[in-house]
Design a protein around this nucleic acid. Structure first.
Length: 430
RNA sequence: GUGGCCGUAGCUCAGUUGGUUAGAGCGCCAGGUUGUGGCCCUGGAGGUCGGGGGUUCAAGUCCCCUCGGUCACCCCA
């Protein structure tokens, strides 16, 4: 047990897992770029009001999960618990032309008890699309999320969608729901008997048997949508159909933040046994920019948890080919000059290469080469140094153990040939 | 915030009703092979037994507290 450890609920992501972590981010970045989203990097902490105003005072995240602190200037700040609020704040501050399409990768902080797939610092990738109420924007976001998961080798997931209505129809539904709940107050679970007045929608989400029974007979959100919301939702659903994405409407999908209007969605893994199986989720937040002091601007987006994606990928046996191994390992018995030259030469040609340090024995260096997972060992001893050659030894696959001594100038060309035989092109897997 | 289980080497773990210098496997280092990895053999390094307090002639072992891990509730990514 070391003296210092990562704080409770946090962890170090190190190789080889970090190679998969990087691959997940890379694949998301690629999908986002292909869809015309630009990267936004915003601070990891904000005036605490940014989160209070948007997530809602009553949300669990704001109530008791935020990392809040005062800086030396007396400002009340909070580490971001999620990505959307900061990005929308950035939008309001800079007022870029709309539609504004931004993607991000960021840590997110919530003070919770850690458990499988849940950390106090986790990481999310996500997008926000601001400036259009078009249901096609909702579909684009959902499609991007699903496509990204497929790109990570994750196929066993379920897409849940719902519509929360808007400022026109939601208040009416809430009133109906409140009437209904007040008539059945005694049947609610202990927690919601005390809390339902402050956040009636939450009852729909409660998993306790008592609330479930009440919920069964509660007035349906889907039946209360106004015509524009109904049409918007229908357009989203038919867009998903057009993309070939299977979906399931879930009236209880209310989600944890207060800012959602109309569309909400969540993608849950079917391969994870753990209780934490939500991979990503989001929705539309047409009033959010205005709440942050900007012009009324519709928007839609999602966040997706990288740790959860890694868990789901592992459960489906995906991303196992991403190892971070190098292509070649240079072994030097000539005093160091050979390794210096050859690693540079290989790397410049796009062949990843590692080497040993400390002038160890040939046996030790070959062992290190073996452990590195490199397919090729490039050996430079006194003989090769004098002759201007290099001995290339194949370490893996059917040709393991074969070696040839070639001219040093031919190393890059021959190396690429040998690597291609293994079906592993130089440079490794992104 | 609530509850269950668990903390012994880098990792996975053993350690008897409390009893001498705390062990194994894997991993690591070196040698067996003065230029050849994986398999094998030999040797070596590596431990405040999570931390603190208590009981006892004696604590890895029993008690209390604490920290950490893990799983679940809650909530979410």
């Amino acid at each position: 047990m070391s003296t210092f450890q990562a704080p409770t609920g946090t962890r170090d992501v190190v190789a080889p897992e970090s190679a998969r972590f990087a691959a997940v981010v890379g694949r998301f970045a690629e999908r986002a770029r292909l869809a015309g989203f630009g990267l936004v990097v915003s601070p990891m902490f904000e005036d605490v009001a940014v989160f209070r105003r948007t997530a809602g005072e009553e949300s669990d995240v704001v109530k008791d999960e935020m990392y809040e602190f005062d800086d030396k200037g007396g400002r009340r700040l909070a580490l971001r618990p999620e990505g959307t609020a900061s990005v929308v704040r950035a939008f309001v501050q800079h007022r870029p032309p709309v539609p504004w399409k931004a993607w991000y990768v960021t840590p997110a902080f919530r003070y919770e008890r850690p458990q499988a797939g849940r950390y106090r610092q986790h990481h999310q990738v996500g997008v926000e699309l601001l400036g259009t109420p078009d249901p096609a924007a909702d579909v684009e976001c959902i499609g991007l999320l699903a496509g990204f998961l497929h790109a990570c080798g994750i196929h066993r997931f379920e897409l849940k969608v719902n519509s929360m209505g808007d400022a026109n129809c939601m208040p009416g539904y809430k009133a109906t729901l409140v009437d209904y709940l007040s008539a059945h107050e005694g049947e609610l679970c202990e927690e919601h008997r005390a809390r339902w007045r402050r956040n009636p929608l939450r009852v729909l989400d409660c998993k306790k048997p008592a609330c479930a029974t009440v919920r069964e007979r509660a007035p349906r959100l889907s039946g209360a949508l106004c015509d524009p919301c109904r049409h918007h939702f229908d357009a989203v659903l038919s867009g998903l159909d057009a993309l070939g994405l299977a979906w399931r409407q879930d009236d209880t999908l209310v989600r944890g933040f207060d800012y959602y209007t109309r569309t909400t969605f969540e993608l849950g893994s079917l391969a994870l046994d753990a209780a934490q199986n939500a991979l990503g989720g989001g929705g539309r937040y047409d009033g959010l920019a205005e709440q942050l002091g900007g012009p009324a601007t519709p928007g839609v987006g999602f966040g997706c948890g990288i740790e959860r994606v890694l868990l789901a990928a592992a459960a489906e046996g995906a991303l196992s080919e991403v190892t971070g191994r190098v292509d070649a390992f240079v072994i030097d018995l000539s005093g160091g000059a050979g390794a210096l030259e050859l690693t540079s030469r290989l790397r410049a040609a796009g062949i990843s290469a590692d080497r040993a340090f400390d002038g160890r024995s040939l046996k030790a260096q070959l062992k290190a080469a073996d452990r590195s997972g490199a397919r090729l060992a490039c050996i430079v001893g006194p003989d090769e140094l004098a002759a201007g050659t290099v001995t290339v030894r194949v370490l893996t696959g059917q040709q393991a153990g074969q070696q040839e001594t070639i001219d040093r100038e031919a190393l890059v060309g021959r190396g690429k040939e040998l690597l291609a035989v293994a079906g592993r092109p130089a440079g490794g897997t992104p």
